[in-house]
C-alpha cells in the first residue's frame, strides 16, 4: 500500500502544486487506481513524487508502512516497488532492438542472462509483441513503441506500475488492447495507477478514482461516487463518461462497461 501523509510539493516555494495531500492508495484491494484532473492539475508532479524523482517539500510517503528513504539505496528499493511509464515512449527507450531495451532494467539488476532471456520473452508475449523481439525500434508504430516502453518497466516485476496517459496517440483498437493489457497485468498480481484524459477509458478500466484539482484531492471513491457529480467534473474541465450520462439522463441502469450494457440490454430485447 502507498500512503501519502500531508504531502505538499512546490517547485519554487510560492505556488504549491500539491497541497497537503493525504491518502492511501491501494487500500481495500483496489487494483487499478485512476487519477483524474485537467492539464496542470498536478497529476504528473504527484507521479514524480511517488517514484522519488521529486522529493516532497513537506509531508511523507510510506510504502507498505515504511517511509521512503531518499538515499541512493532507498530510491532503488522504491523503484523496484513502483515502476513508471511516461507518456513519450521515445524518451524511455535506449536500445535500438526491442529485446535489448526490454532487458535493460534486468541487466541493471544483475539478473543472470538465461533468466533475462526467459523473462523478456515472457513479458513480450504477455504484451503480444513477441514477434517484434528482434525489430529495430525506429521502424515501429507509436502503439508498438508504447508497448515496448511498458515492457521495459513490466519486466522489473514491480508491485506497482504507474501509467501516464497510456492511450494517447492510440487508435480505438490500440485503446481496447491497452484496456485488456491492464486487465492482464492485474491478473498477474500487479497493481496499476494511471492517469488519462479519456474519461470513458478511465471509467471502464479503473476500480477506484481520485479527482485532483488545485493540488488537492477534491473527491475520491468508486465509479458511482466520483462520476456522479457532473458539476464538479465540469469545473475541473473534465466530463462524465457516456455510460454515466445515459444513466443519469436517460434513466438507464448504470453499467460498468459497454460490454455489460449491451450484453444485458440485448437479453432484454
Amino acid at each position: 500500500m502507498i500512503e501519502l501523509k500531508h504531502l505538499s510539493y512546490s517547485y519554487d516555494d510560492r505556488v504549491k502544486i500539491l497541497d497537503d495531500i493525504s491518502l492511501k492508495i491501494g487500500a481495500d484491494n483496489h487494483k487499478v487506481i485512476g487519477f483524474m484532473g485537467h492539464n496542470g492539475a498536478g497529476k504528473s508532479t504527484l507521479f514524480l513524487n511517488l517514484v522519488g524523482e521529486l522529493k516532497p517539500t513537506s509531508g511523507e510517503i510510506l510504502i507498505d508502512g515504511e517511509p521512503v528513504e531518499y538515499s541512493k539505496k532507498g530510491l532503488r528499493k522504491l523503484r523496484r516497488k513502483i515502476g513508471i511509464v511516461f507518456q513519450n515512449s521515445d524518451q524511455q527507450i535506449f536500445y535500438s532492438i526491442v529485446k535489448d531495451d526490454v532487458a535493460f532494467a534486468l541487466h541493471n539488476l544483475k539478473v543472470p542472462s538465461e533468466e533475462i532471456n526467459k523473462r523478456v520473452e515472457k513479458v513480450l508475449s504477455e504484451l503480444d509483441i513477441l514477434s517484434l523481439k528482434e525489430q529495430p525500434i525506429q521502424y515501429l508504430s507509436g502503439g508498438q513503441k508504447k508497448r515496448v516502453a511498458i515492457a521495459g518497466i513490466m519486466v522489473i516485476g514491480s508491485e506497482w506500475i504507474l501509467l501516464d496517459e497510456p492511450t494517447s496517440g492510440l487508435d480505438p483498437d490500440g485503446r481496447i488492447r491497452m484496456q485488456k493489457l491492464i486487465q492482464k497485468l492485474v491478473n498477474n498480481g500487479q497493481r496499476i495507477i494511471l492517469s488519462s484524459h479519456d474519461m470513458d477509458f478511465m471509467y471502464e478500466t479503473c476500480d477506484y478514482f481520485y479527482l485532483l484539482g488545485k493540488g488537492r484531492i477534491l473527491k475520491q471513491g468508486d465509479k458511482q461516487t466520483v462520476f456522479d457529480d457532473e458539476q464538479l467534473l465540469r469545473e475541473n474541465k473534465l466530463d462524465q463518461p457516456w455510460l454515466v450520462k445515459i444513466h443519469q439522463k436517460l434513466g438507464l441502469p448504470l453499467y460498468d462497461s459497454e460490454q455489460e450494457l449491451f450484453a444485458i440490454e440485448e437479453k432484454h430485447n
Binding site: 514524480l48 517514484v51 522519488g52 524523482e53 530510491l75 532503488r76 523503484r79 523496484r80 515502476g83 513508471i84 511509464v85 511516461f86 513519450n88 524518451q91 524511455q92 535506449f94 535493460f104 532494467a105 541493471n108 539488476l109 521495459g152 518497466i153 522489473i156
Partner: peptide, 13 residues
C-alpha cells in the same frame, strides 16, 4: 531531462 527520469525508473547504474 526526461531520459534522466526514465533511466532512474529502469534502475540504471
Amino acid at each position: 531531462e526526461m531520459m534522466t527520469k526514465a533511466l532512474d525508473a529502469k534502475l540504471y547504474d
